[in-house]
Amino acid sequence: MSGLKQTPLYPLYGQYGAKTIDFGGWDLPVHFSGIMKEHETVRTAAGLFDVSHMGEFIVEGPAAESFLQKMTVNDVSALVPGQAQYSLMCYTDGGVVDDLLIYKKADDSFMLVVNASNIQKDFDWLERHREDGVTLVNLSDEMALLALQGPKAEAILQRITDVPLQELGPFRFVDQAQAGDGLALISRTGYTGEDGFEIYVRAEEACSLWEQLLEVGREDGLLPVGLGARDTLRFEARLPLYGQELNASITPLEAGLGFFVKLNKGADFIGRAALVKQKEAGLARKLVGIEMIERGIPRTHYAVGHGDEVIGEVTSGTQSPTTRQNVGLALIRSEHAQLGTELWVEIRGKRVAARVVKTPFYSRKK
């Protein structure tokens, strides 16, 4: 597909059978061997994802931490070097600029990992608010990101690194770690609901690392995995996708991410006043899980109703590959958000019965 951006791993897609699609201006694999097979492989063994389209920024300088405290909703001061944090950036009205990961490399050095579709917007937003004592560098084009996810991920990665992975806790990372023939930042994070790792390397080292991992992981059933299964995996685990569960008109509180919003962290941040007000007034809308009672699959933007009223819409939905249930996430009026409430979803002009259910739809056994 001409005109689309390609990751450093693009030259290898053909030999692994990738079927690619236009994903936000990138030519990326939707699947290699099939979405259902890849989903199941990550749940039971391990899958390898090319997520090099994600963006990486370096934020450094004596004022880097106070700057990030102002720009993000979580408490950056709680981090120690070698620790990562999930967070969000908000507009003044509480709507979400983006959700992101913050890696604390040193007291005055951080790496931000942002969504591919938002790289330029996020960088411009940070640059617009940048203060003295802060340098901001966009390294997105120079880096590649491989995600190794699933119950066998640790055993596979351990074969090509000397980092004692058993000792690496969730949301911890090791920088300048040996990974195959090169150096990488290895973090125990992911977007699948499974244990796993994200491996950041220089773009030119990505292909060799990809092939090495698939080679050493073959005996454990490691497969390359595309965006299709990445979406069903994150959805089952109720992990938000920017553009669906989060956007400029949905706040982190409405999306059920209040745990990550530290209103009392001792530092003001962009959007705080609006979020305090929203919390005090009570949420008018909430993100809930829904399960279809009648036949039909809830899809993004389908209307959700109660009685004769439309009360919201589906943000994500599919037939769960793990449970085989037709389920969705829907942003609806709070008064209808109680578990068990019967609703309807409009599917091809017909009102189809559904109910509010508990999420996540899948949790791994620890």
Rank of each mutant, 00 (worst) to 15 (best):
residue 179 A to K: 05
residue 57 F to L: 10
residue 311 I to G: 06
residue 86 Y to I: 08
residue 236 E to F: 13
residue 193 G to F: 06
residue 81 P to V: 14
residue 312 G to F: 01
residue 184 A to N: 08
residue 317 G to K: 11
residue 345 V to F: 02
residue 338 Q to P: 13
residue 151 P to G: 04
residue 313 E to C: 10
residue 38 E to Q: 09
residue 209 L to D: 07
residue 281 A to L: 14
residue 125 W to P: 03
residue 127 E to K: 12
residue 108 D to L: 00
residue 237 A to Y: 00
residue 306 H to F: 12
residue 245 E to N: 08
residue 350 K to C: 09
residue 131 E to L: 04
residue 299 R to S: 11
residue 40 E to G: 07
residue 92 T to L: 15
residue 365 K to P: 15
residue 218 R to G: 09
residue 101 L to Y: 10
residue 276 V to T: 07
residue 179 A to P: 11
residue 16 Y to M: 10
residue 173 F to T: 05
residue 80 V to A: 14
residue 36 M to T: 08
residue 133 G to N: 11
residue 327 V to E: 00
residue 284 A to T: 10
residue 131 E to Y: 00
residue 211 E to Y: 02
residue 8 P to A: 11
residue 118 N to R: 15
residue 329 L to Q: 04
residue 131 E to C: 02
residue 188 R to P: 12
residue 151 P to I: 05
residue 314 V to G: 11
residue 138 N to P: 15
residue 3 G to I: 01
residue 301 H to W: 10
residue 346 E to L: 14
residue 185 L to V: 05
residue 337 A to I: 05
residue 101 L to P: 08
residue 240 P to M: 08
residue 253 L to V: 01
residue 301 H to G: 12
residue 335 E to N: 09
residue 178 Q to C: 12
residue 282 G to A: 10
residue 298 P to H: 01
residue 231 D to C: 09
residue 244 Q to V: 04
residue 331 L to N: 08
residue 171 F to I: 14
residue 173 F to K: 00
residue 10 Y to V: 08
residue 156 I to T: 01
residue 364 R to G: 06
residue 20 T to L: 06
residue 46 A to K: 00
residue 25 G to N: 09
residue 129 H to T: 00
